[in-house]
């Protein structure tokens, strides 16, 4: 009994350190995924922490951190120990340090092979591609369902209140707090879409007007989110 207790006393800080390494690595990876994906998507459309691929990538990196934790002792007598543990002998602080630093290990030349596109960086990029693909698939399904649900209300709202005017004003209000490049990128698309406005008189049954309204709605969802339509009558 005494030996079991003393074993637990020895193991708990180590196991806690490994658990901390896993948790902090997972959070770091989720954050890094969010930031890098935002560069591509401009506006990450869905909460990334709810995406299964993102959770899987984060947990995989967390496991690498937990395993790496057992190769550290805080004395800095190996390269991995020096890089990850920052010479922390306290297992809790070492767990924190390993968790926060493990991406450096995964993406460093240490886990790649002579600069070839294989190794840790390759695997990490594949993981991020998987996350973006999953986000894209869900986002496409969301937009399609949203438009199918609300397009009849949008078409019925013509001319008062004018759907077109309200959407464009809504997009511009939301993007004005974004970086200049983002605003220019979205504004150029708005200009192009408005140029394609049907020349025939408005008719809710017309395919041309339906396509035009759908394009405006998707443009708003892509770059300003569904906040553009919040509070709109008959929109869900």
């Amino acid at each position: 009994m005494m030996s079991q207790l003393s074993m637990s006393a020895v193991d708990i800080p180590i196991l806690s350190g490994a658990a901390l390494a896993l948790l902090f690595a997972a959070f770091t990876v989720l954050y890094d995924c969010h930031v890098s994906i935002q560069d591509i998507l401009k506006r990450v459309p869905l909460p990334i922490y709810r995406e299964r691929p993102a959770i899987a990538v984060a947990l995989a990196c967390g496991l690498v951190a937990a395993v790496a934790f057992f190769f550290t002792n805080g004395r800095g007598d190996s390269l991995v120990d020096s890089v990850l543990s920052l010479k922390q002998t306290n297992p809790y602080l070492r767990g924190l340090s390993v968790g926060l630093m493990v991406l450096v290990l995964i993406r460093s030349k240490l886990s790649n092979f002579e600069g070839a596109a294989i190794g840790g960086e390759w695997a990490y990029n594949k993981g991020r591609e998987w996350v973006v693909e999953s986000l894209n698939t869900k986002w496409w399904a969301f937009k399609t369902a949203y438009c199918n649900r609300n397009l009849p209300s949008a078409l019925a709202s013509f001319p008062d209140p004018a759907f077109e005017t309200q959407v464009l004003a809504g997009i511009q209000a939301i993007i004005q707090v974004k970086p200049q490049l983002y605003q220019v990128f979205v504004q150029s698309q708005i200009t192009n879409v408005v140029k394609s406005r049907p020349s025939i008189p408005f008719d809710p049954a017309s395919v041309q007007w339906e396509i035009y309204y759908r394009t405006l709605m998707n443009l708003a969802l892509d770059y300003a989110g569904d906040a553009v339509f919040s509070g709109w009558k008959n929109f869900s």
Partner: peptide, 21 residues
């Protein structure tokens, strides 16, 4: 490509409407 990457999948007619070409 930039547009496609930022919007995700997009219908052909919508893509064309968003471009200046």
């Amino acid at each position: 490509v930039d547009l496609l990457q930022s919007s995700g999948p997009i219908a052909l007619n919508e893509l064309v409407m968003r471009l200046s070409e």
